[in-house]
Design a protein around this nucleic acid. Structure first.
Lengths: 135, 135
DNA sequence: CTTGACCTTAAAGTTGACTTGAAGGTTATC
DNA sequence: GATAACCTTCAAGTCAACTTTAAGGTCAAG
């Protein structure tokens, strides 16, 4: 069976060697076999596992959440739990979108109203909008 | 003229004393007068300045950006610069919304498709959706 | 047989926005 | 006049997710 050194795994997965060691310490990656000289040797499917981590991160999952999902996979866990984790994340994401959208609305309205000319003296609409409410 | 101790200011503004000292160190709050015993005494309008900071933070401005805005105010600076800072922030917020919306779309679709039953064995749609693309 | 590229560990540094702790001075109250 | 509730400074700790540094072992090439 072909195996990979940590450097080769890093290259194939796009994840730095040190980050891979960090994931091992954080129990996201299982501790791999070692050579006689104590070098890590990874099975080929380690690449897929790392890419799962990378993708989940891009989706906004934290390492803690990703660990939960990986444990479920490893343990052949309950699908309902995976659904719960994802549903919680979806809820958080929707909250974030709501929050940002409120800001976007006020900020873009404010920018439209502001000519962007003259000194700040009294009544720069941008500054006033922030000072007044801000949420 | 009435002045406030740092504790009174903290209470009125809802910002912890230590955070106020931190803002002073970071040049968001000006260094106030001191009593003979070296205690800080704040003018009443320090409350409004702190609330500006709090609101701007809620809007997602970083302390660096808030400092820029405050410097503009303090210097009676150019309104066009305030507009530029706000426009940059608006752009970043829109990017964040776009990013989150893409995630939201895929995640909610995935959750709809997943019955949330049975073991993870092969083909939990949530795990697969993350593994496959992730952006 | 030496140079350099790779590997090992453990510890410290990074970023942002603070919080917590240590060690001590001041002021208000009993 | 002592106790508690303030205030002072400076340093260190927190969180996440790493990166950087240090000090050293291993392996392939020439």
């Amino acid at each position: 069976m072909q195996t990979l050194s940590i450097g080769e795994l890093a290259e194939r997965s796009g994840v730095a060697s040190q980050a891979i060691r960090y994931y091992e310490k954080e129990k996201l990656m299982p501790a791999p076999e070692r050579t006689e000289a104590n070098y890590r040797r990874y099975p080929l499917d380690a690449v897929a596992r790392l890419q799962f981590i990378v993708h989940a991160k891009q989706w906004g999952f934290t390492l803690d959440e990703i660990r939960e999902l990986l444990i479920l996979q490893d343990a052949n866990g309950d699908r309902a739990q995976a659904k719960r984790i994802a549903a919680e994340k979806l809820h958080k994401i929707r909250e974030q979108i709501k929050h940002l959208s409120r800001i976007e609305a006020v900020l873009s309205k404010t920018l439209d109203e502001c000519a962007g000319e003259g000194p700040m003296q009294e009544g720069c609409p941008i500054v006033e909008a922030i000072a007044e409410q801000g949420e």
